[in-house]
Amino acid sequence: MGEPRSSRRGLALVAVVVVVAGWAASRGGHGSGSAGPAKSAAPTVSSAPESSPTGRPSPTAADQDPARFAPQVARYAEKADVDPQLLMAILYNESYKPHDPAWERAWQRIKPDAAFGVANMHKAAFDQVKQGRDFAGRDWQQLPDDPALAIEAAAWYLHDLARQLPAQRSSPYPKDELLALGYNTGPGNMDAFAQGAKPGSAAQSYLDRLHANWSTAAQALHHSR
């Protein structure tokens, strides 16, 4: 007799928990202010299991490449008046985990405050940024299924962060880097970095990945034209 279906589902969910927990432990929450200047952890690398909790094949590397979203990035970056290269580079930074609706919802059942969508946005950040916007009637739970919505929300979140940057700054970081740090660690920490606070190891790792993804982001946008 084969293994009961409920047992197989349970094992699949355990696999998701083990793998995604490794990712979550190594990344700050985006838009939540959860990774402060001094509270950081070094990133770890985990490999993905071969199948999703629904039994479907796991997303491939091509499926996860943010370059496929370049048209949406260009559109919403222009609409929100933010740098499209910054938005695209952030999507590359956020592509460290499988952005598959089944995977995201399986993890969210274990960790209710997990981030959703290709831009890894928390519910509180989404609910705040959608106020008065074209997507005000949309729900955070829709982010895993709607990459365009996730990108639009991320673009406007960067727009709002830019408005919160202090005019007088003592930081060596340029505007785009401060906005990326704000996206990763929250506006309060962004303000601290703008005033000279030193990023912790997790925030610095995020900034290092942004630098590594910067030219790749530019190429993705160029090839989409």
Rank of each mutant, 00 (worst) to 15 (best):
residue 166 P to Y: 07
residue 140 W to F: 08
residue 78 E to W: 10
residue 127 D to K: 14
residue 80 A to P: 02
residue 156 W to R: 06
residue 152 E to K: 01
residue 97 K to M: 15
residue 114 A to Y: 00
residue 112 P to R: 11
residue 115 A to C: 06
residue 152 E to Q: 07
residue 144 P to N: 09
residue 183 Y to A: 05
residue 102 A to H: 15
residue 147 P to D: 06
residue 147 P to V: 09
residue 90 I to K: 01
residue 171 S to M: 05
residue 177 E to N: 06
residue 143 L to Q: 00
residue 75 R to A: 06
residue 147 P to L: 11
residue 120 N to K: 12
residue 109 R to L: 13
residue 134 D to E: 08
residue 99 H to D: 12
residue 123 K to P: 00
residue 174 P to T: 12
residue 91 L to R: 09
residue 164 Q to A: 09
residue 163 R to E: 08
residue 182 G to Y: 08
residue 90 I to M: 10
residue 149 L to Y: 02
residue 164 Q to G: 05
residue 81 D to T: 09
residue 155 A to T: 02
residue 169 R to M: 10
residue 116 F to S: 05
residue 116 F to Y: 03
residue 98 P to N: 09
residue 113 D to V: 08
residue 110 I to C: 04
residue 127 D to V: 10
residue 89 A to C: 08
residue 130 K to V: 10
residue 96 Y to K: 10
residue 95 S to H: 08
residue 162 A to Y: 02
residue 117 G to N: 01
residue 158 L to S: 03
residue 95 S to P: 04
residue 86 L to P: 03
residue 152 E to G: 03
residue 186 G to H: 02
residue 150 A to F: 01
residue 110 I to A: 05
residue 142 Q to I: 00
residue 105 R to G: 07
residue 161 L to K: 02
residue 103 W to E: 05
residue 112 P to Q: 08
residue 114 A to D: 00
residue 183 Y to S: 07
residue 94 E to N: 15
residue 185 T to N: 13
residue 172 P to T: 11
residue 146 D to R: 09
residue 122 H to C: 10
residue 176 D to G: 07
residue 154 A to E: 06
residue 88 M to Q: 12
residue 155 A to V: 14
residue 79 K to M: 14
residue 174 P to E: 11
residue 143 L to P: 00
residue 97 K to F: 12
residue 105 R to I: 13
residue 91 L to M: 13
residue 160 D to M: 05
residue 150 A to N: 11
residue 165 L to E: 11
residue 105 R to P: 09
residue 78 E to S: 13
residue 169 R to S: 09
residue 78 E to V: 02
residue 97 K to L: 13
residue 169 R to I: 02
residue 162 A to R: 13
residue 128 Q to T: 14
residue 153 A to N: 04
residue 146 D to S: 11
residue 162 A to E: 12
residue 157 Y to T: 04
residue 174 P to Q: 08
residue 87 L to P: 11
residue 136 A to F: 12
residue 132 G to P: 15
residue 112 P to A: 02
residue 85 Q to W: 06
residue 102 A to T: 15
residue 182 G to N: 11
residue 178 L to R: 10
residue 118 V to C: 13
residue 156 W to E: 03
residue 94 E to P: 06
